[in-house]
């Protein structure tokens, strides 16, 4: 394995290419632009296709086309661009197309700013566009995971025929860390549903229209069954110093890194605190939260948003244990000491 000091955003592209991604379509936006830069450099080198779309809307629809043709395809953006893509993502979910979408969050709402924030949680984990659908959401917190989870995203997208997000913030995208890349391997996925432009696939149809309500209901039920299966099989999380914890802290992306340092400091003060980091935000680690709810005293959710993930934690616990919340917004990243103070306040 080759080890390289590399930006998370660039690790995404090397991971994507190693996962056999053939077509990249995207529109520039800070702080996700390095993904497009790296894609425009490496895709042609490997004889694959990079295209800067005329808009976010066009880019996601180009992905829709490429995914229909049965190839692995991706796009990347940040909050405002993700909002624009939502129509296309709804169509892709309805037509059951595997597309990998990277969201490097920035401050919002509106134009907001380009500093790291986590205000996109609701729009990526709850469907985001119109209709009854969800997407798988993977939340890397380091450059290594930017590669690894991007590769996994392509596998999950194909396995479940669904759009999959790689979802993080400007810090994780912009930060350089050592990444060990795996060697290239043969990627072969059977897609007998795709429109290949050949005799065998002539009867195939990529479509999200079901005019008859009963048919559309059946289609919706099929989608819901798929999401339930995903919830049963694909939950991923990471834990840190939870064994004897009285307080469980929760955060994803850069926040989980800050929490880890805060926990180390709190432990030195004798405070029994640990970390539950969801790696999949959908499916959400409800069972793990409930299990912890049976033996710890309380939870602390830290977010760089107005409190979006905390709602899911409360929903998982259904009032069983107190859920505290600490947040910063607008691109302000909470410091280790701020979080430490909050931990001390709760455990006092």
């Amino acid at each position: 394995m080759a080890k390289e000091l590399i930006k998370g955003n660039e690790a995404v592209i090397k991971g994507a290419l190693l996962a056999g991604c053939r077509n990249y379509f995207g529109y520039p936006i800070t702080p996700a632009s390095e993904i497009a830069h790296a894609a425009s450099k490496y895709f042609p080198l490997l004889g694959r296709s990079f295209l800067q779309g005329e808009s976010e809307v066009a880019s996601i629809n180009m992905c829709y086309g490429a995914a229909s043709a049965g190839v692995r395809t991706m796009t990347a953006s940040s909050g405002p661009g993700i909002s624009l893509k939502q129509e296309g993502i709804s169509y892709a979910a309805g037509s059951e197309l595997p597309i990998v979408i990277v969201d490097i969050q920035r401050g919002g709402p509106g134009l907001g700013n380009i500093a790291p924030e986590q205000g996109d949680y609701n729009q990526v984990t709850k469907g985001g566009g119109h209709g009854n659908y969800k997407t798988i959401v993977l939340a890397p917190n380091c450059a290594q995971e930017m590669c690894d989870l991007t590769m996994l995203a392509f596998d999950l997208a194909d396995e479940y025929r669904t759009p999959v997000y790689v979802f993080t913030d400007g810090y994780i995208g912009q930060m350089m860390e050592p990444v060990e890349f795996p060697k290239a391997r043969e990627i072969k996925v059977e897609k007998d549903w795709a429109v290949w432009g050949n005799r065998e696939s002539r009867d195939n149809l990529i479509n999200s229209i079901y005019l008859e309500p009963l048919e559309l209901e059946a289609h919706n039920q099929k989608l819901q069954d798929k999401y339930q299966l995903i919830e049963e099989k694909e939950v991923m999380f990471d834990t840190y110093r939870l064994d004897d914890a009285e307080l469980v802290t929760m955060g994803y992306g850069i926040v989980s890194r800050i929490l880890k340092t805060a926990i180390d400091k709190a432990r030195k003060k004798g405070l029994k605190v640990g970390l539950l980091r969801p790696i999949t935000l959908f499916p959400f680690p409800n069972k793990k939260i409930q299990e912890l709810g049976n033996r710890v005293n309380s939870f602390l959710v830290v977010e760089m948003s107005n409190g979006q993930m905390v709602q899911d934690v409360k929903l998982a616990l259904l009032g069983a244990k107190p859920v505290y919340f600490y947040n910063r917004m607008g691109g302000v990243v909470p410091t280790v000491n701020e979080v430490l103070n909050k931990i001390e306040e709760i455990l006092k």
Partner: peptide
Amino acid sequence: RAPAVATGLKRAN
């Protein structure tokens, strides 16, 4: 979006 979808299809294949 048909021209964008067409672009994706054509570039993929």
